[in-house]
Design a binder for these strands. Sequence first.
DNA 1: TCTCGTACACGCGGATACTTATATCCCCGA
DNA 2: TCGGGGATATAAGTATCCGCGTGTACGAGA
Lengths: 226, 226
Amino acid sequence: MRGFAEGLIDRPQTVAEQVANVMREAIASGTLKAGTALRQDELAEQFGFSRMPIRDALRQLEAEGIVSIHPTKGAHVAGMDSAEIAEIYAVRELLECEALRLSVPALSGGKLDEAEQVLDQIDAERNVGRWGALNRAFHLSLYHACGNQRLLGLIEAHHNAADRYVRILLSNLDYRKRSQAEHRDLLAACRQRDGKKAVSVLRQHLREGSDTLVNAIEGGGLSRKS
Amino acid sequence: MRGFAEGLIDRPQTVAEQVANVMREAIASGTLKAGTALRQDELAEQFGFSRMPIRDALRQLEAEGIVSIHPTKGAHVAGMDSAEIAEIYAVRELLECEALRLSVPALSGGKLDEAEQVLDQIDAERNVGRWGALNRAFHLSLYHACGNQRLLGLIEAHHNAADRYVRILLSNLDYRKRSQAEHRDLLAACRQRDGKKAVSVLRQHLREGSDTLVNAIEGGGLSRKS
DNA sequence: TCTCGTACACGCGGATACTTATATCCCCGA
DNA sequence: TCGGGGATATAAGTATCCGCGTGTACGAGA
């Protein structure tokens, strides 16, 4: 739920936010695997801060759905079973298709050019860690003109929740190629101001991602919910 | 974002959660008006707890969008301008219509009877404070069979965010009558397993609520964002 | 008199040390 | 072998402290 209108107003960054950012990245990158116990004292020592901001950060991440906290049992990196992945993708499809539908008529040529540049960057990028961020940037750039900040916030939150898994997808060269082809189709439909077409391409794109992930996780024996 | 699968697993309630619950109710009921400063040590003294759980509670409420926190300036009861109300209702429409669409074919007769009982309770209820809760219970009871916990969680979160304003609506006798009529239409469509009809009634219902609220707030001079 | 700068008070973020409660594990005895 | 009880680990909560950014009020200078 982070990021409703962030960046618009300058807020001094708190330690808790910095910690949350670092941990979010660590979880997304797989450094912290699903199910890992996140001990407050341990983290406090590692980061060199006291327990207080660490708790704030954990609460924050819990709200984002990538950490689960049980009173007396503590915080763990949230796992995802394939059912939950399917749920997240179903919600993403709902939210993002709506945002795209609203956004397409309002998209400026400049924004579209920006989106295309992001696609070129993805093709050029060799660092696995950056793909996730670029992928997200591309998607969000198409939705920005939707005019509903809250909707964008939710979409961003769900990108966060799915980030770890998107990275798994993107590390697969085959999927990445297909994904990029779909991205270019999507962009083309947007350039033609064909909202219906764009939405249907996006819907297909997300379903493919979801299916690929669910198969990978059900078959591949990835670490499960704690 | 609270309440994804709450209640299914017994978690000992933390002080922070209790505090959050009390404050959520206080904000929804209007006891705490929009813009009110929420000073940590003041609250700590009032509740008789230390600052730590109060901070946790404030973070929680911030994630729910009903409190805004600025480092160094502290927490305030979040206001809503009419634009934000429109946004929330647009998202609610999207989420709830989808949940209903998925849910209708799976709704058991028992669930429908329960929903009808809730409607009867609303008619009988004289206490303004309870209407909001009953109204929410009715809506959620129709969505429960949608099979997507995450979607239900988001819907609940948006009910929380809109709660204060729904209560304003419901304290208006005229709106309440119309609303109840629409609720019965909605229920009837569900009984007929007519998903399309049900969704269209729901959509109309939510749009009416949104419009009524936006007009009330733009005209009525309600307290604004801090 | 009006404006600008400074100084002070307030309240938050954070640190630290300590207490309490709870879950888990392991061992010991029936 | 199994079940109960204690030891241990860890989270939740308490009490207090400090530093710093912000807002404000007051006094000095134009």
